[in-house]
Computed example of a mutant assay.
Amino acid sequence: MADEINKSLQKIAAMVKTIHEATRNNAYTELLTYSVISFDNVWNPGVIQSAREFKITLHVHPDVYVKLYTIIPSMAKTLRNDFNRVSNYEFSEIEILPDYDKFTLVDATIQPVFTPWDEINQSQEKLLVMLRQSTDHLDFQNIGNTARTILQNLADIVYDPSRHAHEDPSADMSAGKFKNRLNAYIHTELKGSGNEELRNFADAQITAMKKTIDLANATTHKLNVGRPFAEACAVGTIHVISIIKTINKSKA
């Protein structure tokens, strides 16, 4: 009997969603699409109540919850009325909460580096949002793709072919070879005795930079990539940005 009631309640929820889809109420449709809906009997001691009285709980995907946060109280009232109108059950309460099972905390120590380049700043934010929202290996691969794109854009910004010559004359310096471009940028900009300390620091970091780029490549192509791999890729990318920012600042 309980299973039959639950099926009926889920059908009611589907009907409410269908109505909002038909009337193009996009906010309500999005809320219902990205929610897990549950029903609980309402029992208050000493009060005669019907076994057909229920409380509705919507556990909403965190991103949708944040997007609709300011209008959720009014949406709750509307939805409770909708559920009551399309059924012979009584829905006395409705609660709309974020689904914390789908909310992933990114390590608080992973912070974007503020740079003079808006595109790089925005890309870092996007990378960390992707990391927070990622749930499977396809998401983690996309983090690798985004990391590669960020490093490519960074190289395009700082590399000047008329100024930054690679130590290896045969090195490919075409647009897609951002590893070579960043390497040439670092070694050119840190020449001279006045940059010895910074150059020593950068020399120690160049290996890490190369490993970051290799990690981004591997993350892109690794079929069973997991969260630790993707998180290391994001951290390494931001670390490279920090190095390039430091060198760029030293030129000012």
Rank of each mutant, 00 (worst) to 15 (best):
D172K: 08
R199T: 05
N200V: 02
T207K: 12
M209Y: 03
E196W: 08
Y185R: 06
E196V: 11
K179C: 00
L190Q: 03
G176I: 07
F201C: 00
K191E: 14
G194L: 14
I186M: 15
L182K: 13
H187I: 07
Y185T: 06
E197A: 11
K211R: 15
L198Q: 15
G176E: 11
E196C: 02
M209R: 04
F178P: 02
Q205T: 03
A175H: 12
E189K: 13
G194Q: 14
H187W: 14
L198Y: 09
D203Q: 12
E197V: 07
N200I: 03
T207W: 05
Q205Y: 01
L182Q: 10
N180E: 15
T188G: 02
K177P: 00
K191W: 04
D203S: 04
M209N: 01
A175I: 12
N200Q: 14
K179H: 05
E197F: 10
H187G: 01
A202I: 03
E197H: 07
R199W: 06
S193C: 02
R181E: 06
A208Y: 07
G176P: 02
A204R: 13
A204Y: 06
G192I: 11
A175L: 14
T188W: 06
T188S: 14
A208V: 07
N200H: 08
N180K: 11
A184R: 10
L182W: 13
G192F: 12
Y185Q: 04
T207S: 10
Q205L: 04
Y185P: 05
N183I: 09
K177Y: 11
A184P: 07
A175N: 12
K179M: 09
A175P: 00
A204T: 08
K177M: 15
F178T: 04
N180Q: 14
T212F: 00
T212A: 01
K211C: 01
Q205H: 03
G194P: 08
R181H: 07
M173L: 15
H187S: 04
N183T: 15
A202W: 03
E197N: 09
L198R: 14
Y185D: 03
N180L: 07
M173H: 07
R199Q: 12
N180F: 07
F178E: 03
R199C: 01
T207I: 11
S193M: 12
G192D: 10
S174D: 09
A175K: 15
G194K: 14
D172S: 05
A208E: 06
I206Y: 04
R199Y: 08
F178N: 04
N195V: 02
T207E: 08
H187K: 15
R181Y: 10
A208M: 05
S193W: 10
R199E: 07
T212G: 00
S174N: 13
N200W: 01
A184F: 09
D172W: 08
S174Q: 13
T207P: 00
T188F: 13
N180S: 13
S174A: 09
E196F: 13
F178V: 04
A184Q: 10
D172A: 05
M173Q: 11
R199H: 09
G176A: 09
A184H: 10
N195H: 15
I206C: 08
F201V: 03
